[in-house]
Design a protein around this nucleic acid. Structure first.
Lengths: 115, 115
DNA sequence: ACAATATACTGTGTTATGCTATGTATAGGG
DNA sequence: CCCTATACATAGCATAACACAGTATATTGT
């Protein structure tokens, strides 16, 4: 049955998180991880991501040269491990800086709006 | 012809700002403003927004009940003034809180990733 | 008076993204 | 042998930001 009229704020909160997803992924892939474990790790750190979001995101990021990946066969099914490329490390630095700038800007706007 | 390979980081930075736009607008509309002046104000506070982004955003936010608007005729051309609705004020509070939570979460992820 | 510019808003089309839903396949427990 | 958890993939949908173009009024310079 769900909620008849979804609070618009829900969608807005989702939009808020949107741009952060790539940054979150970058932050976790200094050491190689596969998609599923990455998802668990992020969920455990208050940054849950849907499968249908994460897997395409990882592929996209590899296409953009931010990540490298390889299949590994251990115990269990084959897993695709992802890790930052050198380019990915640079983009992570840059995006982190940019993020902090944004945080400062928004903080000013918001506190001012609360006055 | 433009640039053949735009830096992927540019797009990512844009995505970062994306979700914040609504919050930024909400923060500025305690007192009524019209689109053009709002755009100037935000640009002056390090939060520039394209016209093609801002005007549809304002309309959407009004549809969602976050803003109220009215045409006013003063000197100069008619201007559509926007201001927060009661609902908009509530959403602004809620989104601000949510934003700060997100900032904390990301901060942890990022600093950890830098270690 | 006229042209040029700044102001102010609108509309169209493109592109990118997140999510839901679904599908595939393997591993392990009861 | 089913059922769940693990692990990855993808098609389809809705939304949103931007580039670009268009409309119209006000102001300024000459």
């Amino acid at each position: 049955m769900k909620n008849g009229q979804p609070d618009p704020a829900d969608k807005l909160e989702q939009e808020l998180r949107r741009g952060v997803l790539t940054l979150a992924v970058l932050s976790q892939l200094r050491d190689a991880q596969y998609g599923y474990s990455l998802r668990q790790a992020l969920a455990g750190k208050d940054m849950p991501i849907e499968e249908g979001t994460l897997y395409p995101l990882l592929r996209r990021m590899e296409e953009q040269g931010l990540l490298k990946s390889e299949w590994r066969i251990e115990d269990g099914p084959p897993r695709r491990y992802y890790v930052l490329s050198p380019e990915g490390r640079k983009v992570f630095e840059r995006l982190s800086t940019n993020w902090r700038g944004l945080v400062g800007t928004v903080e000013k706007l918001v506190t001012e709006g609360e006055s």
